[in-house]
Amino acid sequence: MSDSVMRTAGRSPDERAGRLSEIELSVNGRVRRLAVDPRTTLLDALRERLGLTGTKKGCDHGQCGACTVLVDGRRINSCLTLAVMHEGDEVVTIEGLGAPDDLHPMQRAFVERDGFQCGYCTPGQICSAVGMLSEVAAGWPSHATAAADAVAQRIALTDEEIRERLSGNICRCAAYPHIVAAVRSVAEGDAG
């Protein structure tokens, strides 16, 4: 904040008044520089400032998971964090995972298994699933992990594990059984 207050020459009235903070972060592999109102969440910076509307606002306070993105490889609710907290971070959104003619295996699995209906929670489900699989690979236990597996840091990816670990992502269309099938197919390497 103090940095931005000092760098005032040639800036807008808001910036001169210290109301905007300059940040630099990487989004989908591209360095982006932004002057943001410090109250701006990472979610709103992505959607309203960078035009990356694939990340969805479902509740704006961390209860639905529609805004899930990957920051330095870990999944977070982008509505619960301010953009200014991500100086230098690497953010990957749904647009960065794949494109319609070049789908990420998780995206393809969601299409093939019909893991969505209205599509609004879907980017969050997919980012969450991708982040979750690396958590499992790293041996992080969950509420559903058997104690011995937690100690050994070897997680058997049961359907119960998938459900537990994706419970922060609400799907009101209730595509849950098909989402679990899609995630399982990617984990087992038979998608794509």
Binding site: L52, T53, G54, T55, T93, I94, E95, L97, G98, A99, P100, D101, L103, Q107, R108, F110, V111, E112, D114, F116, G119, T122, P123, I126
Partner: peptide, 13 residues
Amino acid sequence: HRVDGPLKVTGRA
């Protein structure tokens, strides 16, 4: 498969 699927799963819808 849903014809709008690729747009929805990539955040382009």
